[in-house]
Amino acid sequence: MIYGKHSKVSEKTIENIVYLVKKYNYVPNSAARMLSSNTSNIVTVFLPEADDENIFRNPHHITMLGAIENDIRKHGYFLMISSSITLKDLDKNLHAWPMAGIIMLAPTPEEVKYMLKYPNLPKVFIDSHSTEKKAAIVGIDDYRGGYLAGRYLVNCGHKNIGYASYHPDYNDILQNRFNGFSDALKDAGYPLKKENIFLGLTDYEGGLDVANQIADNDLPITAIFATADEMAIGIMEGAKLNGIDVPGQLSVMGFDNTPICRYTTPKLTTIEQDIAKKGRLAAKLLFDQIKSGKVSHRTINLPVRIVERQSVVHI
């Protein structure tokens, strides 16, 4: 009766039940409803492997999850978060919980291909360069982001430029950013030097380590691009601790334009991607699938742009 099915219930009984519902502030048990109806109102967001790190330290992930959760809640669904390390873990999660749909952040091409084995499960992938034609993907032009960063630093007069990121072969996202950046420097006549490539964790501590390497080896780098804002901020702080003036002696540029860029000294120049919009679009594509019962095969790439602040100087 509570769900509108009261054709066989008397008016008096309905009145009594409604009275009791209001009196005791009854809330339906979602788990019981899912079991009885064989449906689910859970949307699971799978985050990439975090190397045993706290996944909620990542400002990119937090911004993304906030946008997704807001849309999911508006549709009357609930968000579940999981970080799967292997395909076996992924499979366990899929069979352990009833899910209305899933959103995967930065899945590998292998993971995308594996998930397509579940044709009846609505799914959207964020930041994946998978070539699977049956996948719904929301991302950005990572190559252009890297190229814009390289061209910008060259146009600011820098010739000896560094690059800081995780290993480019970790995923296609980083590989494309590296390729774009490297091509921009090559096109300008200043090819990226091997000794100017710094690989490590793309977090604050990773940035500190990069700055220490620059200082310890007395490298004549005048500018550096990091593929994550948090890493760029670590480089700025590490440079200062080593007596290197930012941006006077070392210009620093990041990627993402997370909120923390505005609170650093100097404020961080970065490549902006609309992280929240990616999350909202992913949620929209997912609920389109849930409502229609049809799997979407759309790929959407959002634009990127440079946000100029104070951490890069013209020389």
Rank of each mutant, 00 (worst) to 15 (best):
N179T: 09
P168R: 09
T108V: 07
H167A: 11
H167P: 09
G146L: 06
F178R: 00
L201F: 03
P119Q: 12
H167N: 12
E111A: 14
I140D: 06
N171P: 03
I126T: 03
K123E: 03
Y170A: 08
A136Y: 02
H129Q: 12
D187P: 00
S165H: 06
K92A: 12
M99W: 06
P122L: 09
G206K: 07
S130D: 15
K159H: 10
D169V: 09
I126F: 03
N120G: 11
P107C: 10
V154Q: 08
Y204W: 06
S130L: 13
P98V: 04
G200R: 14
E205F: 09
M104Y: 13
N120F: 15
L90M: 11
A96F: 15
D203F: 10
F198Y: 15
H129A: 04
Y163R: 04
N160W: 00
L185I: 05
F198H: 08
T202V: 11
L201A: 01
K186S: 13
A136G: 06
K117S: 14
Y152I: 05
A136Q: 07
Y114G: 01
I126D: 05
Y170T: 09
M115C: 15
N171V: 02
K92F: 14
L116F: 14
S165R: 04
A136V: 05
R177L: 09
L208G: 14
N179C: 05
G189S: 15
G180M: 01
I161K: 07
A164P: 05
L174F: 13
P107N: 11
K159E: 14
T108A: 12
E205H: 10
K113Q: 14
F125G: 03
K123F: 05
G150M: 02
D141T: 09
D209M: 12
L121G: 05
A184Q: 07
Q175T: 04
L201Y: 06
Y170M: 09
L90E: 11
N155Y: 00
L116Q: 07
K186M: 14
A135G: 03
I102D: 08
Q175N: 12
N176V: 02
T108N: 03
Q175V: 01
K194I: 09
N160A: 13
F178H: 03
Y170W: 12
M99P: 02
Y166F: 02
W97T: 08
A135F: 08
P98T: 10
P191K: 11
K159F: 00
G139A: 05
G101H: 06
K194M: 08
G146M: 07
V154K: 07
A100Y: 02
P191F: 13
E110M: 06
P109R: 02
P107R: 00
D91K: 15
Y152Q: 12
S128N: 10
Y143E: 05
I126R: 01
Y170D: 08
L94M: 13
P98D: 07
V154T: 12
K134G: 06
G157F: 01
K133I: 08
Q175L: 14
F125C: 04
Y204V: 06
N176D: 15
K113G: 00
A184F: 07
Y143T: 02
